[in-house]
Design a protein around this nucleic acid. Structure first.
Lengths: 237, 237
DNA sequence: TCAAAAGTGTTATGATTACACCCATGA
DNA sequence: TCATGGGTGTAATCATAACACTTTTGA
């Protein structure tokens, strides 16, 4: 098929144009586990639904810009990690065509005032990644795919640190891996592994006002752009 | 944003409809390395271009059906492995909008008569994965992404066997891993690893008419659907 | 001085690597 | 009997897991 044929075919009725949705699973690590942001959606019948953050592709905006826009709208400007997972196709009862949605996930650490306001007003909430019964099938599929991607990635790259503050203790890293992978982690062995990567810089600072031995603070010894590319990790759980 | 708002917005001009292209990198393992199928495309000026196999989404066809259709059209009916990698957005000089393409890769072993005819007629050819200068930037991006996905996947799952015949020798498996990963593999150590997985059944058959010790034939001890799900491999190269 | 969590050390086990070596086959 | 590649064995090294132990802190 040559370019001319292609152009002809594009004008033929059997090729279809699509609205493309971007669905973004926005994750935040909290004391009691990994959370995902859901936004309130009230349908024509007045019934409340909770959905992943989403938008549709606009003219003059790229896929990535649209995903960034969703993230910015929900949690404000910050240095979150944003990654596409794949395109999903969902058949619906409304149309013969599949609904096309491109799935993204974001790992965020900073919670903005705007977000806190939206949560206070009930427009938005964090739900545990295992308490997703409020979501529809489509969002559940996308969410679970994102979680699996994150599980794979945090064992190979340093992206998980996007869920931690700039300075953190080893216990916080262990919490991160434990909550995301859903497994128990041996403190001693994990410490050896993570320190052996050379990924961490000791800040020679300690926790204060804790009623037990104070933990050291570390920071990532990578620049932000390096975190994305870093493939130094090789954890096998 | 509720469902009513969404519907209103869908009709507003700043949301855009897209033709969605599916690009499929079809791989075949040959004596001299991993090959990808490219198809000839002659533009309005009569200039020849080589492209990955592709099509656009049609009405009444899902993304997956469209990708399967591309594969069937190129190599005929068979039990190839087909997997989506992600959605790509490419800015072009023809349009303000991004061109949206969903990338797939296929691992094929059987070459059909139709394909041989197309190759003979010059409509199609196999190129080495490191000899991609004939491809445009867009196809190069998609191809390289697919190759990286395959490299990651063959160390974790049995999908690589989709590139081998139903029965194969250990040397063929080593060839597969060597060509895809681009590294040398120690025969003895690899043999131990792959046999330890329990993935292979000894067929108690041997090569014939070879001028050296005849190699044993093995087959995968998994059913086809299990291959997709199998996460037993854990190779660290 | 106690509880609690940080942090260290030790040992057994298993995986990986780098080889040397033997075996079967057709020419 | 030779060249070629299939197939086996082994010892050193490295990574992992399990768990006991010591240290620091506020109460």
């Amino acid at each position: 098929m040559n370019a001319r044929d292609e152009k002809e075919k594009m004008t033929v009725k059997n090729y279809k144009k699509y609205y493309i949705e971007i669905d973004c699973a926005i994750f935040n690590l909290q004391e009691d586990g990994l959370k995902v942001l859901v936004v309130k959606d009230i349908d024509d019948l007045g019934v409340t639904h909770w959905r992943l953050a989403h938008d549709w592709l606009k003219k003059d905006k790229t896929i990535l810009e649209t995903a960034s826009g969703i993230l910015k709208r929900c949690i404000g400007e910050n240095s979150s990690y944003l990654e596409q997972v794949k395109a999903f196709g969902f058949t619906s009862s409304y149309s013969i065509k599949e609904d096309i949605s491109i799935g993204y996930y974001a790992l965020v650490r900073i919670i903005s005032n705007d977000l806190e306001k939206h949560i206070a007003e009930g427009h938005t909430k964090w739900i545990g990644i295992n308490e997703t019964s409020c979501l529809n099938d489509k969002d559940t599929v996308i969410l679970n795919y994102c979680i699996q991607e994150i599980r794979d990635s945090i064992c190979k790259t340093a992206i998980g640190f996007n869920l931690l503050p700039e300075k953190f203790t080893l216990a916080q890293i262990i919490h991160l891996y434990k909550e995301i992978l859903g497994i128990d982690i041996d403190k001693s062995n994990f410490r050896r592994k993570i320190l052996a990567t050379g990924l961490l810089s000791d800040l020679y600072e300690k926790e204060e006002n804790v009623s037990h031995r104070a933990a050291r603070f570390y920071k990532l010894s990578l620049q932000h752009q390096e975190i994305l590319l870093n493939k130094e990790l090789n954890f096998h759980f």
